[in-house]
């Protein structure tokens, strides 16, 4: 019965499978393989995208935020916020556990940009370092034009970025910031924390 079926399916009329059937099968296999290879190549080709550098921020937003964070923890003889990858910390966390702050960043950064353009006639990133410091102090103290700020207020926005910059700089590297334990090295703290196992003498650790 099963023999019959196979023969029947293969379209053979007599004994065995005809050469035509074998050829057909080979053709189908070849075609299939070609389609498989082609499709994979196509997928990998069309799927190829420039790596989006950030999950949440646009490149312009990130550029501004990087400049703000670098003001908060600037580079001197040791790493600053940029070196430590603070932007990646913030970007990753507000795409995750801190998602509730997304709107504050989007609106806050927009207000921040407008503030600098209005007060200094120049984008923040292009100001000299000292001028950036002044601009940031203005916002920290809530002294920038208030009509450019809604929710978050300028003070609230500053406090948010300050807190997240500290987290990114001092937190565990696995969250995206504190690259190569930059801040721990700065403070002379052992990293990763190492402690040998207990050894005992007469039941007491030595």
């Amino acid at each position: 019965m099963s023999q019959d079926l196979i023969v029947g399916i293969a379209g053979a009329n007599g004994d065995g499978v005809s050469r035509r059937t074998v050829l057909k099968l080979v053709a189908v296999v070849a075609l299939g393989a070609a389609v498989g290879v082609g499709a994979s190549a196509g997928i990998t080709h069309w799927g190829r995208t420039a790596p989006p550098p950030y999950r949440f921020f646009s490149e312009a937003e990130a550029k501004l935020l990087i400049a703000i964070c670098e003001q908060i923890i600037p580079r001197d003889d040791t790493s600053g916020a940029t070196d430590a990858g603070v932007i990646y910390y913030i970007d990753r966390q507000i795409s995750g556990p801190l998602a509730r702050h997304q709107q504050s960043y989007r609106l806050g950064l927009a207000s921040f940009r407008k503030t600098c353009l209005q007060v200094y006639k120049t984008p923040f990133e292009e100001l000299a370092f000292e001028q950036q410091t002044d601009a940031l102090r203005l916002i920290e103290e809530g002294n920038a034009p208030n009509d450019l700020w809604g929710d978050p207020s300028q003070k609230a926005f500053f406090d948010l970025v300050l807190d997240h910059t500290r987290q990114g700089f001092y937190g565990s590297p696995r969250h995206g910031g504190n690259r190569d334990y930059a801040s721990y090295r700065m403070l002379g703290l052992a990293y990763p924390n190492l402690i040998g196992q207990n050894r005992y003498a007469n039941g007491r650790p030595i």
Partner: peptide, 16 residues
């Protein structure tokens, strides 16, 4: 100060 070089200096100088 809460930020800037002064923040960093304080961390380095006084953490321990």
């Amino acid at each position: 100060p809460r930020w800037g070089k002064a923040h960093k200096d304080f961390q380095r100088r006084y953490y321990k």
